[in-house]
Amino acid sequence: MDFEAELAKFQPSLDIEQAEDAIYGNNTTDVTDLLQSILSGAKETNKNSPVEWVEES
């Protein structure tokens, strides 16, 4: 076992004073947010795209 590498894996624990930063820094973006952004993006795309002429055969 590489003890140094193992030691390097250990990260400092957060103090209670740092809890606020942890809460604010928490990435609260989830898949529903992504879905929402995808949906809103698709809507915009649909709005801006020009209507093409379709020839009848």
């Binding site: 624990s13 957060l14 209670i16 809890a19 942890a22 809460i23 928490n26």
Partner: peptide, 12 residues
Amino acid sequence: GEIVSALSEWVI
């Protein structure tokens, strides 16, 4: 024993 993480989750 990760108290701060626990508190953070509960606060959120």
